[in-house]
Design a protein around this nucleic acid. Structure first.
Length: 803
RNA sequence: GCGGAUGUGGCGGAACUGGCAGACGCACCAGACUCAAAAUCUGGCGGUAGUGAUAUCGUGUGGGUUCGAGUCCCACCAUCCGCACCA
């Protein structure tokens, strides 16, 4: 053994050794642990130190679980279909199939540098026909269950990506991928009925061990609200307008109604005199960008000339059209209560519509309103409802409406169905054939996968059609039902399709009979710990839950929720900005590994800050962990050959080390694990200097505890400590509670709440004895003072209050 | 606008149920070793006053509860993130 820590040699040696003899082998006698990283898109830029952060964390947990006696599934794969890969290919003028393969090779090489215990036999690649066969199969099952359907409607269109976007990808009116302003385009597209699962997706969030933040983002996105649907008869007509409201208690205050410009049946409502103005307004609204429509707080609108009747008081109220009402939420019509809704208040003020207050805040008097009041209170000006509490009435009114046949209790969601087709080349072909006689017919399962054909030009078009539409020999086929000439669907699936179920494939990735066998799924899944960034909170994580629930319903998987525990690591920035090639601030792990070694970088990735927080990268800190590993090396090297009998102090520190590292590791507060190692090592070094060495038990313990974090140096030191097996076979150390009991303890002494000294007391000392000792320590500080109160918190503090 | 998170030395950050604020590390300063440097080791390192023991202020701001508050309560400020006319 070298007295100097030769990391390059050590890391090379143990990497080769683990290749030959993996430390994590399947053994069904052991309990399972499935530890998963969000699989990467194989980018041309490769990995940076930000990627390492999550991968190191999950590998530390995986290795810890191995040490605890689990069989661990810790797989890795490639999310390789989709726009980023295709755009990279277009930019570099290489076919995406080739550039993707190249990038996978490069990123895989970089991943090897982390020395994670990935099981490469389980690797999945979403662009592999053996994989996307099942991505297509799932689509066919959804089609058969009526959950995949075609619809013509105005959709989010990204003019830069030249394809449609799901609502989740167009949040905020900009493209999630490229940031371009999203426009609307009326197209026929494939949709997935994720709304059918809205309630379950919402309900089951409760049982998940996820951060409240992500759960809230999902539940807000689903956006369930309770209320009533109320019918308003149109004056002088047999037609009616239904509205959805969450505040039926304010019905008496409804003084006008507003319809969305796209409201179905608007033409029949508008009076002839108003037709021209309304048509003009609707045309203007249709040309406004969705961003403008969202951000323009200034209300606009136009009167339709029509009136309808408020069903609770029989009053006639005017019907307007305004673009602040959304056509695709609720019924596209809103009953307006300006006194108790901010938007209605603005509108009423601007167009001089009446404002009738029907809720009086508790303990106030009725007076003209200067702004809308949306809170609770007593109902007034509402006939027989007067005197009721508003928020109670909110619940009761829908029932009353139902009894009187004026409306019904109902719920509404913000969640929309998932726009699932893309006008791009690099994706899974949607396995559907369009036949003039039979309609849309799924490709028979025994003909899956529908292979993505080779093309000359894979560049996106502006036509709203995929480049696949240009390949006549591929498009033209025969109908599987009637055998007549038919055409293939030319759209492809969105990049989220493959990632919505990949975690299921890892458990049985070579299976060509089913997406994964029930046995393999039962053995490994669901995922015990899922590690990844928070950016997919309402994208991938919502879609994957939806897929899993669907597959559960058709009996393909035995559980409803894919990810029991989710951990979102913070982003690593450089100079305050997200690392990107264009900003030129990408910190590559390659040079750091070369200079300090994999172990040092692994440990530093954890030490940079609390794992869930964003932090800015600074190379200089890595020196600290590098020095620590050098000191550790020297410590073991100096004491291994002449171990001493453990002293009481040494046993105490050693057991405290086990206890602290274990609890901090369980809590995933990895930064404090690293500082704990440093702190206790310093203490043990001091003890060692005093007593001329450390015990064999202590040295062994340190090395085992370090192993999940810095596996190479740990294996080497373990061997040097005389062991022949891998350190990962050693078992995780157990705390000996009896060694944590101390005879004496240091406590603080305060006088009137101010620190005035410390003292060593016996842990068994009674209150009187401790107080007496404290007074002795304070001595003449107490002279001339009268003690009015004595406080002793056992094991913590003495506080004497003086006058 | 609504919702959430965060705010502690020059810097990254510790502090479990309220109980010695600043652990651990970086940077910096001094000393040892060296012809010298690097590496390593030892010590120091929140502000102010004092040679010093010590005193005093100090966890975004202002109040409060408490013997005692970074931690609990109220109000506010700043930064970041999410949602954004969802009736």
């Amino acid at each position: 053994m070298n007295s100097h820590y030769e990391f390059t040699e050590i890391e090379k040696k143990w990497r080769a050794e683990w290749e030959k003899n993996p430390i994590n082998v399947e053994d069904d006698k052991k309990p399972k642990f499935y530890c998963l990283d969000m699989f990467p898109y194989p980018s041309g830029t490769g990995l940076h130190v930000g990627h390492w952060r999550g991968y190191v964390l999950s590998d530390v947990v995986s290795r810890y679980k191995v040490l605890q006696g689990f069989q661990v599934l810790h797989p890795m794969g490639w999310d390789a279909f989709g726009l980023p890969a295709e755009n990279f290919a277009i930019k570099n003028n290489i076919h995406p199939r080739i550039s993707t393969a190249d990038n996978i090779t490069n990123v895989k090489r970089q991943l090897h540098e982390i020395s994670a215990i990935y099981d490469w036999d389980k690797e999945v690649d979403t662009t592999d026909p053996g994989y996307y066969k099942w991505t297509q199969w799932i689509f066919v099952q959804m089609f058969k269950k009526g959950l995949a359907y075609e619809k013509q409607m105005p959709l989010n269109w990204c003019p830069s990506c030249k394809c449609v976007l799901a609502n989740e990808e167009a949040a905020g009116g900009t493209c999630e991928r490229c940031g371009a302003t999203v426009t609307k385009r009326n197209l026929r597209q494939w949709m997935l009925k994720i709304t059918a699962y809205a309630d379950r997706l919402l309900e089951d969030l409760q049982q998940l061990d996820w951060s409240e933040k992500v759960k809230k983002m999902q539940s807000d996105w689903i956006g369930k609200s309770y209320g009533a649907e109320v019918d308003f008869k149109i004056s002088g007509s047999d037609n009616k307008i239904s509205v959805f409201t969450t505040r039926p208690d304010t019905l008496h205050g409804c003084t006008f109604m507003v319809l969305a410009p796209e409201y179905k049946g608007l033409d029949e409502i508008v009076t002839p005199e108003c037709k021209e103005a309304v048509n003009q307004y609707c045309f203007d609204a249709s040309t406004k960008s969705s961003v403008d429509r969202m951000t323009d707080k200034e209300k606009t609108g136009v009167f339709t000339g029509a009136y309808c009747v408020n069903p609770v008081n029989g009053k006639e109220i005017p019907v307007w059209v305004a673009d602040y009402v959304l056509a695709d939420y609720g019924t596209g019509a809103v009953m307006c209560v300006p006194a108790h809704d901010e938007r209605d208040f603005d509108f009423a003020t601007k167009f001089n519509l009446p404002i009738v207050q029907v809720i009086l805040p508790e303990g106030t008097e009725e007076k003209p309103l200067t702004e809308a009041y949306a809170g609770d209170g007593v109902i007034i000006n509402s006939g027989e409802w007067n005197g009721m509490k508003a928020f109670e009435a909110k619940k009761k009114v829908p029932h009353m409406m139902e009894e009187q046949g004026l409306g019904k209790k109902t719920v509404n969601y913000k969640l929309r169905d998932w726009v699932f087709s893309r006008q791009r080349y690099w994706g899974e072909p949607i396995p559907i054939i369009h036949c003039d006689h039979c309609g849309a017919v799924p490709v028979p399962e025994d003909q899956l996968p529908v292979l993505l054909p080779e093309v000359e030009s894979y560049k996106p078009t502006d036509t709203g059609e995929s480049p696949l539409a240009q390949i006549d020999e591929w498009v033209n086929t025969t109908c599987p039902v009637c055998g007549r000439p038919a055409k293939r669907e030319t759209n492809t699936m969105p990049q989220w399709a493959g990632s919505s179920w990949y975690f299921l494939r890892y458990v049985d990735n070579h299976n060509d009979k089913e997406l994964a066998s029930m046995d393999a799924l039962k053995k490994w899944a669901p995922v015990d710990l899922y590690v990844g960034g928070i950016e997919h909170a309402v994208l991938h994580l919502l879609y994957a839950r939806f897929y899993t629930k669907f597959l559960y319903d058709i009996g393909a998987v035995p559980f409803e929720e894919p990810f029991q525990k989710l951990f979102n690591q913070g982003m690593i920035t450089k100079n305050g900005g997200k690392m990107s090639k264009s900003l030129g601030n990408v910190v590559s792990p390659d040079e750091l590994v070369e200079k300090y070694g994999c172990d040092s970088l692994r440990m530093y990735e954890l030490f940079v800050g609390p794992p869930e927080m964003d932090c800015d990268w600074d190379d200089s800190g890595i020196d600290g962990v590098f020095r620590f590993l050098n000191r550790t090396w020297k410590m073991i090297y100096s004491y291994k050959d002449a171990p001493v009998q453990a002293s009481k102090d040494e046993e105490f520190i050693c057991n405290k080390l086990i206890s602290d590292i274990t609890s901090r590791l369980e809590a995933l507060t990895m930064n404090t694990v690293v500082s704990g190692f440093m702190e206790y090592s310093n203490k043990l070094n001091d003890i060692a200097k005093k007593q001329g060495g450390l015990s064999k038990e202590t040295l062994d313990t340190i090395v085992i505890l370090l192993a999940p974090f810095v596996p190479h140096i740990s294996e080497e030191l373990w061997k040097e400590l005389g062991h022949t097996d891998s350190v990962f076979a050693a078992g995780w150390p157990q705390v000996d509670e009896s060694k944590l009991v101390q005879d004496t303890i240091e406590i603080a002494i305060q006088v009137s709440g101010k620190l005035r000294g410390t003292m060593e007391i016996s842990t068994s000392a009674a209150k009187d004895a401790v107080l007496a000792q404290a007074k002795e320590v304070l001595g003449n500080r107490l002279e001339g003072k009268e003690i009015v109160k004595e406080i002793y918190v056992p094991g913590r503090i003495v506080n004497l209050i003086v006058k």
